[in-house]
Amino acid sequence: MELIVFVLAAAMVLGGAIGVITRSNPVHAALSLVLTLFGVAVMFVSHEAHFLAAVQVIVYAGAIVVLFLFVIMLLGVDRTEDISIEPITAQRPLAAIVGLGVSGIVIAAIISSRSALSVTGDGIDQTTVEAADANIRQLARSIFSNNVFAFEVTSVLLLVAVIGTVLMARRIKLREAGK
């Protein structure tokens, strides 16, 4: 059962990921991204991380990709772009090097930690995981007590990003008004 769910979810994730790269229409690519995010949510559920799955769908699929689509629709860039002219000629070889490098690092990490992966323990502690709302309790305790500093710093980071965006948008307007 677990294997079937894993295979289906993995197919969703990989199919979506390939779709994001290969579809030339930006809206189709964004939809493929949604498929990937759903696949990850299914994986979360199959590992008893129900709350993470819900947040994955609400935040990523429900808000972030919707904003992507919103921008694509609003700016009208939903046409196939002409990619035969290269704005930066070194882009393609550099991308190939970075891609190969990253996959090399990931493969190396998997090989070096293979002994740790193959250890078969008792699995997840079913009684604590399946208790009502156990997911939320554990996550909340971890975020708001053990890692509260990182949490607050992240929220400040987001605030800085929002204020920066507003400032940049306003400055362009002021410059135009100045001319």
Binding site: V34, H50, F51, A54, V57, I58, G62
Partner: peptide, 19 residues
């Protein structure tokens, strides 16, 4: 187990259909 969050997740999916 996620209870009412399921309704929120579902309603955020419904946006896609309309868009």
């Amino acid at each position: 187990p996620i209870g009412v969050l399921f309704a929120l997740a579902i309603s955020s999916i419904a946006v896609y259909g309309i868009m």
